[in-house]
Design a protein around this nucleic acid. Structure first.
Lengths: 149, 149
DNA sequence: TACTTTTGTATGTATATACATATAATTATA
DNA sequence: TATAATTATATGTATATACATACAAAAGTA
């Protein structure tokens, strides 16, 4: 559905304005779908993002800073997301002996198992985006890279 | 900068996955820039969104439901955003006499003046997106519409 | 070595999101 | 008309964002 109809706005100042609104609208739409899917598994999209980063580092530990710099939302608060994941025993956290300011954060067996379970869901939800061709998906992605300069 | 470098991730499952992450990343980037600009004027991006919708209806009133359906983030909570705008006297709110369940929400003179002041800033920030051509902006926007089905 | 600066992480506070539920007014139905 | 169903909005609660600030450890410098 066209953005005009989604937000019932007839016109925009120009195509840059329309694009900015469309990106934010589509992002909210994506996060809503993704979040509802993850909810059944007891985690949020941000917590999922952290777990994915930790799996990427596994079996090594990651620091809070490394997680933060790899998150989609750079303003998110990795410290507190890790607190939540700790409560669910999906990650472990201990002071790094080499640099005692840092934290060694690792995904646990339980966390890895959850991600394995979620891989199928992940495949399904990206498949639901096949309303455009893979070439179009690449084109849009490349233009978004260019947009950010 | 390429998404790969922004979030330090070497590869993605496929171009759909890369696109989904890129949209969410770019949206967060846009909101951060926009939000920092608006901050000087004492409002948030969501409050700005509500004020724009109200200006579009002005001099008529809008109901809370109408605002909600036109917001970029459909899950946002228009009631509470209106509370915040009321405190700043940027909007007025009174019970609709025809249907006493509804609220008549209107932008005030103060609200309109703030938006006028912000129009210049708005032009500048959309101009900052001219790293891609207007034709490319339209193309991406149309493909995002198609992506959502 | 003593002092300053920088770095890594945590925390306080205000705002917003996501979902469930509550409440009052209106509309539909028996 | 009494009752049930629906609609519009508000509120409770958990989570996350945005920014400032705090604090301890490490690194740099006199």
């Amino acid at each position: 559905m066209k953005l005009e109809d989604e937000i019932k706005q007839k016109q925009f100042a120009n195509n840059y304005h329309r694009l900015a609104l469309n990106i934010m609208f589509t992002s909210s739409w994506l996060e809503t779908i993704h979040g509802r899917g993850l909810r059944k598994y007891g985690i949020t999209t941000q917590q999922y993002n952290v777990l994915r980063i930790l799996r990427g580092q596994s079996p090594n530990a990651a620091t809070v800073g490394l997680i933060q710099e790899r998150m989609l939302d750079k303003n998110s608060n990795a410290s507190r997301l890790i607190d939540k994941l700790l409560l669910k025993k999906l990650v472990s956290r201990k002071i790094c002996p080499e640099d005692r300011r840092q934290m060694d954060v690792k995904i646990t067996k339980k966390g890895l198992d959850l991600l394995t379970e979620l891989d199928q869901f992940q495949t399904e939800w990206t498949n639901s985006l096949k309303t455009i061709s893979e070439a179009e998906a690449k084109l849009v992605s490349d233009l978004l890279d260019k947009l950010r300069g």
